[in-house]
């Protein structure tokens, strides 16, 4: 965090009108993405994926397979990009790191007692330290939603700032779990707190709560990022996660990103999709674009 950034009073953050933001979000879906724009968008979306497995039943074998998929998305189409990162629990960071080697695919680890965040601060610190020490390039922390809803914004702020320190060089993604916050006004407030506290990314959801990412909630966060950028000159990255499994929807998100933050954000340093099944749908659409023939899932590997 730059020392010259003035921390605002979080009891007064920008307000959001629900009907207006949803109208605006649906307007992006009216864009018709064709031909080369579509192909570029599909490839870009593929390259923005945080390929994710976050299950109690995750094993070394599962994570290794996922890492192979991350590096070799579809062998029938040489020259495809890789995904951006593989996202796992801290216990699997070492496995993933080794499997991905020097492929350039990053390892992201959830932490801070993901997904609920209901643990003592020391546990969250240790959780994060463990992931970082095992080689995580990125940390996906959760905010304390309970404290946030109690109005203890300083607690939430301090916790994010603390985890940021522990991250060191790892980039910090702050998960707001928007599905538990209830209103867009609170999503906006949580976004502001996260960014001012040092988040490199703000992220919608854990994927464990419904609703997860939606276009309007992502738009609220993108607009928060834009306002933060206007004020401080500092770019913050965005990661919608959960619920984005279709190529068409991913393209809508990219249209939205492009029209809210512009082309400087149109790469995987500044935007990610947290998703598990999106990759194959993108691949099917890419092959359709390439061959002109509608595809079957039987021809795309499920790892």
């Amino acid at each position: 965090m730059k020392p010259n950034i003035k921390i605002p009073d979080f009891s007064h953050t920008a307000v959001v009108d629900q009907v207006g933001i949803e109208e605006r979000a649906s307007r992006f879906t009216k864009r018709s993405i064709k031909n080369e724009t579509k192909m570029n968008g599909l490839l870009l979306a593929l390259n923005m994926i945080d390929l994710t497995t976050l299950e109690g039943k995750d094993t070394v074998g599962k994570v290794k397979q996922l890492c192979t998929k991350a590096m070799h998305l579809h062998k029938a189409y040489p020259g495809l990009p890789t995904v951006a990162a593989v996202c796992v629990y801290p216990s699997m960071v070492g496995v993933a790191k080794k499997a991905l080697g020097d492929s350039g695919v990053k390892v992201a680890s959830v932490s801070t007692a993901f997904p609920s965040g209901q643990a003592p601060t020391q546990v969250k610190i240790d959780d994060t330290k463990y992931a970082v020490e095992n080689g995580a390039d990125e940390i996906d922390m959760v905010i304390s939603r309970g404290k946030f809803l109690q109005g203890e914004y300083n607690f939430v702020f301090d916790e994010i700032a603390l985890i940021k320190e522990i991250c060191g060089d790892a980039r910090l993604k702050v998960i707001l779990e928007t599905g538990e916050l209830g209103t867009y006004d609170r999503v906006r407030k949580a976004s502001d707190i996260a960014m001012y506290a040092g988040a490199d990314f703000i992220k919608t959801s854990t994927g464990k709560i419904s609703p997860a990412a939606t276009m309007p909630v992502t738009l609220v966060m993108l607009e928060a990022i834009r306002d933060f950028y206007y004020k401080t000159g500092k770019k913050i990255a965005m990661k919608p996660a959960g619920g984005i499994s279709k190529a068409k929807l991913a393209l809508h998100y990219l249209v939205m990103l492009n029209e809210v933050l512009g082309e400087d954000w149109m790469n995987n340093e500044w935007f990610r999709f947290g998703a598990s099944s999106l990759a194959n749908d993108l691949l099917m659409q890419i092959m359709k674009q390439k061959t002109g023939i509608y595809q079957s899932s039987n021809y795309f590997s499920i790892d």
């Binding site: 009108d17 629900q18 009907v19 207006g20 209830g182 209103t183 867009y184």
Partner: peptide, 17 residues
């Protein structure tokens, strides 16, 4: 009513959750 103008007012309705 001859000497009245009809004014129509609109406002969004929030419907979350």
């Amino acid at each position: 009513l001859d000497l009245q103008e009809i004014k129509t007012t609109w406002h969004p309705i929030e419907n979350i959750g």
